[in-house]
Every structure is written in C-alpha cells, then in structure tokens.
Design a protein around this nucleic acid. Structure first.
Length: 588
RNA sequence: GCCCUCGUAGUUCAAUGGAUAGAACUGGCCCGUCCUAAGGGCAAAAUGGGAGUUCGAUUCUUCCCGAGGGCACCA
C-alpha cells in the first residue's frame, strides 16, 4: 500500500522532488483523523516551487485520486497547513492482506535485503572473568542479540562475538584478594560452583578496596599484574587458571540460558601479542609515541584526548588489547562491517581507538561502528562491582521469576510441569523488553517494583496476546472448524473479502507495517523501534480479539477469514518477538 | 576547567523538523452466562528557563539552570 502511494506521488511530482533533493516520505499518523498514510511533501516542496503549501497539497490530493487505480483509495484529502492524507479503501486493505498472507506462508514476510550477502560481526555482552555477570551484561546481551537478529533479518550473515578481560588490572585485584585468603582456598574448591563464584567476587571487592586505600597493596597488585602477564609464578598460574575456569563455566551456562550463540569468545590474553605488534607499528609510523615511559596516542589534534596504550611497566592497556582484537577479527573473519556494543562511558575512549584504527589500518577505516548502551541506575544509587553492590543477572532473573510465580500459578492454562519453563520465559521476556523498548544509549533507571511491569506496555503483554491468538487457533482445530492453514493449505480465493470490520482492517494495516519497522530498526541499530511496533501490533490484535467474534461467528467463510487473520497475526507477532529475543509462548 | 550525553504527565518511556506531544504504570470510573481479564473502554495529567533559525521546534543553534559520564598509565 505504502509503495503504491509513493509511486503515485513520484508520478505526480516527476523529478521536481528529486531535483530539490527532497525525498517523498509517507508516514503512518497516530491520529486516525489524519488518515492511514500522510505525506508532508507539499509543505517541503512549496517554497522551491513558489506556491503555497495548501494549494500544492490540494493539487496533489486531486491528482493522486485521479491517477490511482479504481478503488485504491477511500479518499485523499489535503489538510492544513499542507499535508496530504490518504485513506485506503477496504478492498485495497483486503488485497494487502491477501499478499501478506501469501508471503507469510512462504515464511518470508517482513524480511529485507538491505544487508544481503554481507558478513557482519556483532560483539556484545563481554563479561569479564573474575568479575560477576551483572545486569549491565544482561543489558548488553539483550540489545546485542536483538541487533544481531535484526541484521540477519536483513539478509546478512552475522557472527556473534564476545570479548572478555582475562588479564589486566581487575584480574590482579581479584588475584590479590584471593591470595589474602589463600588458606580458605582448598575448602572453597570443594564447594559448589556458586560458592566458588562468591569467593572470587569477594576477592575482587577486597582487592579493589585495598588498591585504592593502601599504597603498598597498590604496588603489590601492579607487580602481580605484571607477574600474571608474564606467567612467571606457578602458584599464581594455578590460582589464575581456577578463577578463570569458574567464571567462564558460568558465562557459558548463562549464554545458553539467554539463547545467544557466540561463534567466538575472544579473551584479552590472546590479543595481547597482536596488540603490542600493532603498537610497534603505530610507533614506527609516528601515530603513537613514547611519553613519560608509556606509549600514548595524542588525540588532541583530532579533538580527542590522549590515551595510554602501553603503560610504563610495559603492560598493554585496554587500548592496545582492543587494537589487537581489531586485527584479530580481521584475520579470523572476512567481514563487511563490525559492530561493537559497550557501555556509553566508553564513548570517548572508542573515538580515540577508532581514530587510531583509521590511521593505522586504512583498509579497516570506517568499517567498525561503536554502539553504546546506557547504564543501569538505581533509585538506591549506582551499582559498582568494585564496591560489591552489584546485582547479578541471575539474581535479577530470580527476583523477577519470584514475583511472577504467584501470577502464573493463579492461572490454569498450564500444566504444573510447564509452569517453571513459562515463568522463566516470561521473566526473561519482561527484562528484555524493558531494556529494548527504550532508546539505546540512554541510562535506564531501574526499579524492581516500578520499571518491571507485567501489565500494559511490557513483555508479558506481547506474550499474552500471542498465547490468546494461538488458543483460538487450537480451539478452532479441535472443533474442526475450517482448516487453519498452518500446514500450508492455501486459503480459498476471495477469503480476504470477509475481512471487513474496523478492528480487522486496522489490524491488517498494522501487519503491513512490519517490514518497514524491522528494516528501520536494523538500519538504526536500535531495537526500540521494533519493540514499539510489536506493542502496537499486539494492541491491534487485542482490540480485534475483544471486539470480533471468531469461532462464534455463524458464517463459515467469515470464520475462516478471521482464523486466517489470526494465524498471520500470530506469526508476525512471533517474528517480531523473535527479533527482540523474546520467546513466543503457545500457552501462558 | 574542558569534552560528550540527557532534562517530556506523579512515575517509567515515545515522538525520520510536522498536524490536537503518543503510550504504559499509579490514582478515578465502566465492561464477567462471551474464543485466556497478564485483556478492553472512558476521564485526568507533561516538553527545565530565555533568545534565535524555520511556513512549522520536544527535535536544529546559543546562553542559563539541573543530572550523568569522560578527560595518562582501569576496562
């Protein structure tokens, strides 16, 4: 429908719009009084053409109606101060539905080809061994996984990557903390996985505190950092191996639970060499320089600031390692684009890094995009793993599940055995949706009671809408009322003519928006637009469900048509949810 | 001090420079012989302040106020 109108507008405007550099755009107004589609082209073109916006809008409206195939529009109207609003005829909407249903059967409705044939790396989550997997990582995971799926939906092959700091100062701090209680270690190693993790979390908190408070401890930790880096001490090596292993085992378990499949998990320890080599090259090329015993990049002439790449002890910092990672990625994958997702506190740092990459590795220039997410903030104050007041991803999910449990058991649609699984999926969906519905890059103020709602614009609402649609389908199948063509049986010709109520037509118009919504979210690398779309689709589906009898309708053809609409809606909703990383549940 | 984000109903979030700023939660009022009420409907409620650009500004520029982040050996 949208493409039809744009084509008509291009026909009317000829090359005037193109010459003026003004794109012909069509939007879907929130306000029903402004039509199904609306364009502002008359206002934008009035000045170059030397006419009033309203006069142009009137001309365009009249001409559009004149040029359109018979029966496409219900009406086309100019509106002050110069909009042109379009209302599709029911028949045009019905035909759109027939097309969507056909595409949907082919399981390709909504897919785009903006990234067809491209290989895109997406690095996200990035938990660090020796530290906890906290809700910040959960946030990165939710956004990154959704971005990955959106890009795949546009035809690209996506390689999911994670990168973790298994060497560096934070490790030295944790190791220092652990060495303070080395006598406990044999006992702890006999205990549960979670006790071992708790030991390391506490060790890190201790080590961090001592690093800040005690100059002598600080010196020891810096030395320890070098020792770890050099693999110089067997006892340290053994302790390190244990800590690293405990962390990584946990991460693997969580990745599985979060349904994210990384093809490669990079560790800082393995990119050190490439990083140092790149730094050498940078020095040779005069991009990096020695300063006060360290190797730095002076970013001031680029409007950036100076950053240290190798510290005065000869240990590469995050900068050099990230440089090594970039080189490494290029060696491991032939990629067209690489996306790195981090917290927004790294924005300035990444500008420096990407500038160095541009200067040092010209063939990678511009291929890497840094995307940042905001921080999780609490009414109660800031979370800091250094201070030990972090909320782990597991703790959050456990708490959300706990709140859901009562709600799930009140409802009888599920067998007891399935309730735990549903609770898990709803909890994950609720958390994911609350993260994804917001613009990425913004901080999220997190409040257990308030921000994680299970009603209204929230994950469970979408899952519920889906489950209800599926329930109707099941009942229809049980009753033998019409073959819902899940198995691929084509609907009888002309069925779409029975889609006629306002709620039905509005729902079809929503369905038609799906490809645009997915494409736009992928282009902007922002799942929030798709989350908003899924919500609006669910609203339209619920309205249809509430207002329109389906199984109870006496007319067999109409019943079949409505079942078909339900089937397609459920499938599109499921596709949308999948792109958000939220499981569509058959029953709730 | 310099740089980057961000200030929208009581709260949490929307709004490719467009129309009457859109939702949800909370509080108020309706809908139960009906396909899952985690639902549907009604009413109420907001752009931090000032100047500017524009036919049109939540959006762009600038100043002020406020919050967060970054600014050399952490990541």
């Amino acid at each position: 429908m949208k493409d039809d109108i744009i084509a008509i507008l291009h026909g009317i405007l000829g090359k005037e719009a193109a010459d003026a550099g003004i794109p012909v755009e069509l939007s879907v107004p929130d306000e029903p009084a402004f039509g199904h589609f609306s364009t502002n082209i008359a206002m934008r073109l009035a000045k170059p053409k030397g006419v009033t916006p309203m006069a142009l809008a009137e001309d365009i409206a009249r001409e559009a109606l004149h040029r359109a195939p018979e029966g496409l529009f219900e009406k086309v109207e100019p509106a002050t101060p110069g909009f042109v609003n379009f209302w599709m005829s029911p028949r045009a909407i019905q035909q759109a539905f027939a097309r969507i249903a056909k595409d949907d059967l082919g399981k390709r409705f909504g897919r785009g080809n903006a990234r067809a044939g491209a290989t895109v790396l997406v690095e996200f989550t990035d938990p660090n061994p020796f530290k906890e997997f906290h809700i910040g990582h959960l946030m990165s995971n939710a956004i990154g996984e959704s971005m990955a799926r959106l890009i795949e939906f546009q035809g690209a092959e996506v390689k999911r990557l994670s990168y973790g700091g298994d060497v560096g100062l934070h490790v030295a701090k944790a190791m220092f903390g652990a060495l303070q209680r080395r006598n406990d270690i044999p006992a702890v190693r006999e205990e549960s996985e979670s006790a071992q993790l708790a030991f390391w979390a506490a060790a890190y908190v201790d080590g961090s505190a001592r690093y800040e408070e005690d100059p002598r401890a600080r010196e020891e930790i810096d030395v320890l950092n070098r020792t770890i880096f050099d693999h110089a001490d067997p006892e340290i090596e053994a302790l390190y191996a244990w800590g690293r292993e405990v962390s990584i085992a946990k991460f693997k378990e969580l990745f599985l639970r979060l349904d994210t499949d990384f093809v490669r998990n990079y560790w800082e320890s393995e990119v050190v060499e490439d990083g140092l080599k790149a730094v050498e090259e940078g020095i040779a090329k005069g991009i990096l320089e020695h300063s006060e015993g360290a190797v730095v990049f002076k970013g001031e002439s680029y409007g950036l600031h100076t950053r240290v790449f190798v510290n005065s002890r000869g240990v590469p910092t995050y900068e050099a390692k990230e440089l090594g990672l970039t080189v490494r990625k290029r060696r491991d994958f032939a990629f067209d684009a690489s996306i790195v997702l981090t917290g927004n506190e790294q924005n300035d740092y990444f500008k420096v890094l990407l500038k160095v990459v541009d200067l040092l590795i010209p063939d990678l220039a511009g291929k890497t995009t840094h995307v940042s997410h905001g921080m999780l903030r609490f009414a109660s104050g800031k979370m800091s793993s250094r201070k030990g007041n972090v909320i782990t991803a597991e703790a959050l999910l456990a708490q959300v599940s706990e709140r859901l449990r009562g709600k799930v058991s009140e409802r009888s649609m599920l067998a007891d055995a399935d309730r735990d699984e549903a609770t898990e999926a709803i909890a994950l969906g609720a958390v994911r949706y609350s993260i994804l519905k917001q613009n990425p890059g913004q901080d999220i103020v997190f409040d257990f009671e308030k921000s994680l709602s299970f009603d209204g614009d929230a994950g469970p609402y979408l899952q519920y809408a889906y489950a209800r649609l599926q329930s109707v389908r099941r009942k229809a199948e049980e009753a033998g009322a019409g073959k819902v063509s899940a198995t691929g049986g084509a609907a009888p010709e002309g069925l779409q003519a029975f889609i006629a109520t306002d709620a039905e037509l509005a729902l079809v118009r929503r369905l038609a928006e799906f490809p645009d919504a997915a494409a736009r979210a992928a282009e902007r690398l922002a799942p929030s637009g798709l989350a908003a779309y899924c919500y609006r689709l669910a609203v339209a589906a619920n309205k249809f469900y509430e207002t329109t009898p389906i199984l109870k309708d006496e007319d067999a053809m109409r019943r079949e048509a409505r079942l078909r609409l339900i089937e397609v809606t459920a499938h599109v909703l499921a596709s949308g949810l999948r792109l958000l990383g939220i499981r569509a549940l058959e029953r709730i």
